[in-house]
Simulated scan of single mutants.
Amino acid sequence: MATTEIYRYLAVNDQQVTLDPEGYLVVLGDWTPEVARCLAEEEGITLTDEHWEVIQVLRDFYQRFEQAPAMRPLVKAVARALGEEKGRSIHLMRLFPGSPAKLAARIAGLPKPTHCL
């Protein structure tokens, strides 16, 4: 029996952005800063400069390694790029509550990190 995935759409300006059942972009090329703002708003997050720094680190990581980092590699990448103070789990939890690696990757327009439930 085939499984049917339910996709939903995010209206951003005059564009319909397709999201998978977990809320990740189906087409990574659909990502824009405005899409990020809309995805963040769905989570009750207003993006600040600190959020954008982490989003940029994530997008750079993905470009380099072709995968979104799980929590441990994310902490290390942020510490390397932004300094030890920002590269701490507690800082990332404050910015992206719950599961920072998953939530930040989703807002950054990246696939769900491997090894994240």
Rank of each mutant, 00 (worst) to 15 (best):
P33N: 05
A2Y: 10
K76I: 00
A105S: 15
Q56W: 10
V17K: 13
N13L: 03
A81P: 00
Q63E: 03
A11H: 15
A101G: 14
T18V: 11
I55T: 13
Y9M: 04
K102W: 08
E53F: 01
A101L: 07
H51Q: 06
D30Q: 06
D30H: 13
R8P: 06
E43W: 00
V78K: 13
L92A: 10
V75I: 13
G98R: 08
A77H: 13
M71D: 04
A108N: 02
G29S: 14
G23Q: 05
A104G: 07
Q15A: 13
T114S: 12
V12A: 08
K76A: 03
P69V: 05
K76G: 03
K112C: 02
R80F: 08
P113S: 07
K102Q: 14
R94I: 01
D20Q: 02
P69L: 06
Q63Y: 03
E53S: 07
R59P: 06
L10I: 04
A105Y: 03
A70C: 15
V54S: 01
I55W: 09
D20H: 00
A77N: 10
N13S: 09
V35Y: 13
E42D: 09
L74K: 02
Y9V: 05
A79Y: 15
A79Q: 14
I107G: 09
Y7D: 10
L117M: 04
R94W: 09
Q15G: 06
G83M: 05
E5C: 08
I6P: 04
T4P: 08
L82I: 14
L95N: 12
R72Q: 12
Y9D: 00
T46N: 13
P100G: 02
L28A: 01
D14F: 01
F65P: 02
E85L: 06
E50T: 06
P111F: 01
L117C: 04
M1Q: 12
I45S: 02
E50R: 12
K102S: 15
E34F: 10
T114L: 12
L39A: 02
D20W: 00
C38R: 09
T114K: 11
I90E: 15
W52Y: 13
G44N: 00
Q56R: 15
G109N: 09
G87H: 05
A101V: 08
L74Q: 07
M93P: 00
K112R: 12
R94A: 09
T114R: 09
A79N: 07
P73D: 04
D20F: 00
G23P: 07
A81E: 09
A36G: 12
A105L: 04
G98L: 05
E66Y: 09
L74N: 02
T32K: 00
C116H: 15
K86A: 07
E41H: 13
I107L: 04
P33Q: 01
G109A: 12
L10F: 02
R94V: 02
E34T: 08
H91Q: 10
D60H: 07
M1I: 03
L110N: 03
Q16F: 13
G109V: 14
R59V: 10
H91L: 03
I90G: 13
R8C: 06
D14E: 11
V27M: 00
H91F: 14
L82Y: 03
R80S: 12
L117S: 07
F96K: 12
M71Y: 09
R64G: 11
H91Y: 14
A104Q: 13
I6R: 15
E53Y: 03
I90A: 14
A2H: 14
L117N: 06
L82D: 04
H51I: 11
R88G: 05
S89L: 14
P33L: 03
K102D: 10
